[in-house]
Design a binder for these strands. Structure first.
Lengths: 237, 237
DNA sequence: ATAAATTATGGCAATTCGGTGGCGACATCC
DNA sequence: GGATGTCGCCACCGAATTGCCATAATTTAT
């Protein structure tokens, strides 16, 4: 199913840039230069995701207004805010407008794509969590719909954020996930150090169950990786 | 069994949008642009669910008329009303047209699907009157057709809303249900705190019968889960 | 080998989240 | 009309979680 993304951004160059990039990833994209035309179209149809530039239009913070108007139309549609300056982030998150993510414009296109993909994956994961699914990777079992992680027959007592991090790592076994990717997947907006803290706590919980635990590898300078377990286990080790 | 849903909505774009979405979830969908063609077809065959736009046609509230006409044909077919404005909701619910749900058009497609699925589940639970069906999960027995819940041989005196919440939880044993999902399943439109209140009351009622009751688990930051008895076996090493 | 960069660790404080009791609105039943 | 039951929500509190800091340890570069 093709998803529909709306971008509300008055600078034509930037808007076009984002549109092209997202279309390239097979999203259906509508661009709007001002909040009036955007809102008009939203009233007909709510997109699957709305990306809003905070510094919209002449008004100081037209993006906020649009956000409120949009929220009146749909309480659930995911919203991503774009801001020119990093310093705006505090202000924005303080407003509790119910946006799902906040990005500064200086990030790369690839970054934006990553966030969008991650956001849709979360939405998908939540909406389809009725189906019983189970991933096995060696001694590890992940049950998404139950939010359970099992290591060698034992339930690992993870918190929600920890669960999403494991989820992300195990979903790409053997691949390095950067701190940024992990934050995207877990939908947390924090600095890299905090990811380190989470990894530490996750490791501790696994090691409390199993002293030998070492599947969660650090890749110096890059991120973390769930070590692919050789499927052909030797009989005796 | 594939269910048949009819959508009566004069705006082609919206109608098409909903049709596509519902078909994607494997429902058979018929779309009608006006109440005359809809009614004509209903006389031949009653669908399993009818979704009606209130602001139908030229008449101020053509949807209501259609609803009455449809009710004359079938007193039981579930009906979902769509309204453009949130403020209409009060008016509608005051009319007591016997519709089963009222949604504003701004909700996301995923939300609509969730409501439809939940509605069919409720209908299914109650229409199995003749079957005298019941589910057993450990010490719990649910009799959907009687809206009864039995814990260790004793009837738990639940209210209707409480019953549907238990129904939702027990229907997905071991799975985490978010507050939003619980609201959809119980067909209530409230804020998350209220779900917490219901859970409290449900727990109190169970605990009045059984001090040890602890099958209704909180998943911090995510929702609630009915802990299946069989899975709490010894994983001890 | 030394310096620089990156990550690990322990701990703390702030924040978020859920539990609880209670209140008022509303409907129903007598 | 009064009694009763249900329901949504609020305010408060305690507890779980989380972000981040200072410092130690490790890895990489020079």
């Amino acid at each position: 199913m093709q998803r529909h993304i709306a971008i509300v951004e008055d600078e034509a160059a930037i808007r076009q840039n984002y549109q092209d990039a997202l279309r390239h990833y097979n999203y259906r994209v509508s661009g709007y230069a001002d909040r009036y035309s955007a809102l008009q179209n939203f009233q007909r149809q709510i997109p699957d995701l709305v990306i809003i530039d905070v510094g919209l239009g002449d008004e100081a913070e037209g993006g906020f207004t649009l956000c409120r108007e949009l929220r009146a139309l749909s309480r659930t549609v995911p919203i991503i805010f774009l801001t020119a300056r990093d310093s705006d982030l505090d202000v924005i998150s303080g407003l509790r407008l119910g946006a799902d993510d906040y990005l500064t414009k200086d990030i790369s296109i690839n970054h934006l794509i990553a966030r969008v993909v991650a956001l849709f994956r979360r939405v998908e994961a939540l909406s389809s969590n009725t189906k019983e699914e189970e991933w096995r990777r060696g001694h590890l079992t992940v049950r998404p719909s139950r939010m359970e992680v099992i290591w060698k027959e034992q339930l690992v007592p993870l918190t929600v954020t920890e669960f999403w991090l494991i989820h992300s790592l195990v979903h790409h076994p053997g691949h390095v996930r950067s701190r940024q990717q992990l934050m995207d997947d877990a939908n947390v907006l924090v600095d890299g150090q905090t990811i380190t803290s989470h990894i530490k706590r996750i490791r501790r919980k696994f090691q409390q169950l199993d002293k030998e635990f070492d599947e969660l590898e650090t890749v110096y300078g890059a991120g973390y990786r769930w070590r692919p377990q050789t499927e052909t286990e030797s009989h005796a080790s």
